[in-house]
Amino acid sequence: MKRRDFLKASAVGAAGISLLGFPLPAEAAQSVTLTILHTNDQHSRIDPMPNDGRKYGGMGGMARRATLIEKIRKEQPNVLLLDAGDIWQGTPYFNFFNGELEYKLMSRMQYDAATLGNHDFDNGLQGLQNQLPKATFPFLIANYNFGGTILENRFQPYKVFEKQGLRIGVFGLGIELAGLVSKENYGETQYIDPVPVAQEMVQELRQNQKCDLVICLSHLGYSYKTDKIDDLKLAKQVPGIDLIIGGHTHTFLDEPTVVQNAGGETLVNQVGWSGIFLGRIDFTFNKKNRQKTGVSALVLPVDNPVLTS
């Protein structure tokens, strides 16, 4: 079993708080576990990949995913189910039903939030608007300005979720649309540089919203050799994000990449495409005295996860 070894901090803080006897669940508990489940680039893969010898043939399938998520929900008290965009495009289900079934099934699985990928614009702003009522979950996007379009004021940049008193801030970032999406499909939607936007989001979620964990749903892509912004560059340049759930590049990662930055570290994860895998990261929260254990006091080397049996 792989695990990352953290320095043990003084337990004084945790013991102290329990003396107060407040009944708020998170404050009463010694530790709380949060389970993040995630997908990206589902590409309308309702049914499993055809089992015709292709790579990952026979894998995936939304009805199976529903079973898996239901099982995890029964085992875990605090689940957040998230998607990093490109829900649409890739099978005839999208061509014939325009994304309706994808949103319906995700709503049944109780997705908590998604962000927008470039292919989610494939039926234009109107096509997106037509299907949004089918989704019971919000689309979070902080760096697209829909001002002056039919989708103006339709999306929030972030949402704060509360689980047992823990506050989890989730925000969304989209890729530059020009060159990827036909102009007529995205219209006057403006793309804004994700780096300053992410900095603002971290500030807002940490300072004003008092979040204990900050998650970015990103459709920027995992890594490019060019200057183009990607999840690894974002993690390096914007401290304060705990987890980037990525998409667009259809990258399969055996485990999340840990990026060191000025504020500590950021995990970057992505699970390929088509719902072949369900991403899962469990965070165990322990009450610590902030003065005694700064974020920088965290851990051991990150690119060399400690292997224990």
């Binding site: 990352r4 803080g13 999340p256 469990d282 974020v295």
Partner: peptide, 9 residues
């Protein structure tokens, strides 16, 4: 007092 998260990888 702040919650500190340890991810399980």
């Amino acid at each position: 007092l702040a919650w500190q998260a340890s991810p399980s990888l």
